[in-house]
């Protein structure tokens, strides 16, 4: 089966800003794909190109086997989109917006809509101007999740949701995944990504810097080692792939690249290992390392 989304070498400039700078992104059919990156890294721009709202300057983008710009209308029947900041018409009720967007997309599953309204505890009778930020977001979510579509494109969909609703959202996406829907989820919430995503792509300055399953990403990164040795391990800091060594007589702490792990452990055994704790990098560390690069 084709990939649901296949993007390569995508470039988009706004005046002097180069929002996308050769972005590659592949989302396999049936997976939940996390799309992460610091503010202004180009996530929303990518999503708008995939929706045929923006036209790319260079590169190719394929969506559900079609061209997002040329085949926009046909493709939009097969996908649903939730923007990060759902804005509603002040004089339409939430229920009206949900029905309208669903119908414009080609149909809405009324049973699912009723169920989602219940689960998200959303009052559909309020007028647009009367909803709080989180409730506006729920209107967008219900409108998208209640559509029988193959692909969900969600741009920070849970911004403003309280933790309970965030939990409901995760449960809904997990169900959708079991039902075979493909999801592209842009998010800043790592716990959400960790709980839901099969694979993730990390984007920085308009370019993908990492892509793969979370396990793969972890393996690409340093493991922290905390070890008690019988003797002081001279020369450890000089080994290739070993970083941030702190030696307190026999108690040694350091980080080591995944590639160098085997050699490093072999080296340590020469000093008489009494105990050893190894810790894979947490997601936070993994992302912070990428995010920090932008600021520096």
């Amino acid at each position: 089966m084709d990939d649901a989304i296949a993007v390569s070498g995508l470039v988009k400039t706004f005046g002097r800003t180069r929002a996308l700078d050769g972005l590659d992104l592949t989302v396999r059919t049936g997976e939940v794909h996390g799309f992460l990156g610091p503010n202004g890294s180009g996530k929303s721009t990518t999503i708008r190109i995939l929706l045929g709202l923006l036209r790319a300057d260079a590169g190719t983008a394929r969506l559900l086997g079609g061209d997002p710009w040329r085949d926009a209308v046909a493709l939009h029947r097969r996908l649903a989109y939730v923007p990060g900041d759902v804005t509603l018409w002040p004089n339409l009720s939430g229920g009206e917006v949900i029905d309208l967007l669903g119908r414009l997309r080609g149909g809405l599953n009324q049973k699912r809509k009723a169920e989602l309204l219940e689960r998200f505890e959303l009052d559909p009778r309020k007028k647009g101007r009367a909803y709080s930020k989180g409730n506006r977001q729920k209107v967008g979510l219900v409108a998208a999740l209640a559509s029988d579509v193959e692909l969900l494109i969600l741009d920070e969909p849970t911004s403003g949701l309280d933790p309970l609703m965030e939990e409901t959202f995760r449960a809904c996406i997990a169900e959708d995944k079991r039902n075979g829907r493909t999801v592209l989820l842009s998010s800043h919430i790592l716990a959400e990504v960790e709980a839901l995503c099969d694979r993730v792509t990390i984007i920085r300055n308009g370019r993908a810097v990492e892509s793969g399953t979370l396990d793969e990403l972890r393996h690409l990164h340093r493991t922290s080692i905390d070890v008690e040795l019988a003797a002081t391990p001279d020369g450890l800091a000089e080994l290739p792939g070993v970083h941030d060594v702190k030696i307190d007589r026999g108690h040694v702490r350091f980080d080591v690249d995944a590639k160098a792990l085997d050699d490093t452990l072999r080296y340590l055994t020469k000093f008489g290992v009494r105990s050893l704790v190894s810790q894979p990098p947490t997601l936070e560390e993994l992302f912070l390392r990428h995010y920090e690069g932008v600021r520096s």
Binding site: L92, S93, G94, G95, E96, I98, D99, L100, R103, P124, R125, K126, K127
Partner: peptide
């Protein structure tokens, strides 16, 4: 409050 669902014409 507004209607909970859209009129069929909307």
């Amino acid at each position: 409050p507004g209607p909970a669902a859209a009129a069929p014409t909307l």
